[in-house]
Design a protein around this nucleic acid. Structure first.
Lengths: 268, 268
DNA sequence: CGGTTCAACAACGA
DNA sequence: CTCGTTGTTGAACC
């Protein structure tokens, strides 16, 4: 579930708190999440020092003195900076830092912790679209021009634009008064602009509040972007904040969509 | 039907005949083939002068003083340079040049005429694999290594290698003695080399003959690569040119395949 | 007739 | 929709 805001907050804090610290040891409980054998993973990272930490969509990209390290938390999980003596109960992988702290990674189901010499060469990171919140309006319009299919499916495809998941897609579509299944080809420039503004607003608001309340940051603290900020997401049955029509939960492809049936109409 | 050879011939002639000529006006009969509203399309191109014309796979790329213009003729069509007073009967879009000539685009079903600031930003052109006839043997081998699925599906995917369609894929597979459904992973280096040679030979022969006989060039003249050059393509029931076994038409995914069942065997 | 492209969906696997 | 890959179908409409 961590999407762009949570990853952005994590990356910012990791960049500030981890820069120039050295990885003294690596312990892997779940080798399946790696892209190389555990022994090679360890040898590539042991002794490396963390240079910078970046966010790209839902991915964390750690630049080290020896290699790039990419982390994707999959359907949900945490990256925590703890004391070596206070490891959390569940974890998949831990990096001991030379000063006694420990960077612990956990996730519920599948997640990735990959090493790579270069982001462009990585089969997943290399194919990401631009980091959603960095996209300019002209860029956004160019990305959409000539595409077919629904606007929601487009936004969720990380190859088009990176960082938006099913949580953060709902309210921007409502703010732009767009039904999730609206065909991209039918969008006017005004609608595209409204959607772009709404996406930025929503993502930035969550970043400013430290991310979603149901996720935790590097120090285990919950974000402050809670359900009270949601306009339509996960509010089926409640009144639309604009017109009071009861909100609906619909199926949009294989995912759930939350809409106001009056404000977000699908042209016949 | 225009595939790499026809597009290469068109691009060469357009580059020679259109360079430095100015687009004075644009007329659009079918707005659906555009990626921007017609008014914007016109304003982006009116007054632009054509700088260079390139071929990339099945796409024509026109570099102008103001924007890029990408043309894909889909399942068949023409780009003709005519006198303004002699417009053909069917056309989708016409560019009036300032000297009185007219560049007319037509296609049977679906085609694209798109503007874009940069080929890399265009959702289709930006994802094309390398122009098929420019691919070297080592490159070809590298493209195939590690891929799964059938060799025919790979060759037809414009993201892997650009320019090969269902017409030009048939004879090279026969020449390399490969069944269209052969798994890529089972191909030997010798088979890959034979396929690469056969592809180049077939594409280059057609280019040298001005493209397929059922297509026309910029001046409405038919190519000279006709059915008499086909080895197995569209020749079901006729004897194999190598072993005289009757050729077969088979289904390969959603497309038709033409094979010699004796020369192109599928290993059990 | 065919031939094109992308999108949607399923199934599977990590 | 955590992410890929593969294959299939369907839809674009003179």
């Amino acid at each position: 579930m961590p999407e762009l805001p949570e990853i952005a907050v994590l990356a910012r804090d990791m960049d500030r708190d981890l820069a120039r610290r050295e990885i003294a040891a690596v312990e892997v409980l779940q080798p399946k999440c790696l892209n190389v054998p555990p022994a090679e993973f360890e040898s590539r990272l042991k002794g490396a020092s963390i240079t910078r930490v970046h966010a790209h969509g839902k991915w964390l990209k750690l630049e080290t003195s020896r290699t790039w390290l990419f982390i994707n938390l999959g359907m949900g999980g945490e990256v925590l900076l703890v004391d070596r003596t206070r490891l959390p109960e569940h974890w998949r992988l831990a990096f001991d830092l030379s000063d006694g702290a420990c960077l612990v990674v956990n996730f519920w189901w599948f997640g990735y912790v990959h090493v790579s010499p270069d982001p462009a060469d990585h089969p997943m990171v290399g194919r990401l679209g631009p980091h959603a919140i960095d996209v300019t309006l002209p860029q956004f319009e160019a990305l959409l021009r000539g595409r077919r299919g629904s606007i929601k499916a487009f936004l969720l495809d990380q190859g088009n634009i990176a960082g938006i998941g099913n949580v953060y897609v709902q309210d921007p579509l409502f703010m732009a008064r767009l039904h999730p299944l609206r065909g991209i080809a039918t969008l006017s420039s005004e609608e595209i602009a409204a959607l772009w503004h709404a996406l930025r607003t929503t993502l930035q608001q969550s970043i400013d509040l430290g991310g979603a309340a149901f996720e935790v940051n590097l120090h285990g603290e919950h974000g402050r972007w809670g359900r009270e900020h949601f306009l339509v997401a996960y509010r089926e049955g409640k009144p639309c904040p604009v017109c009071a029509t009861p909100l609906e939960k619909i199926r949009t492809g294989s995912t759930a969509g939350y809409i106001c049936p009056a404000c977000q109409r699908l042209p016949a």
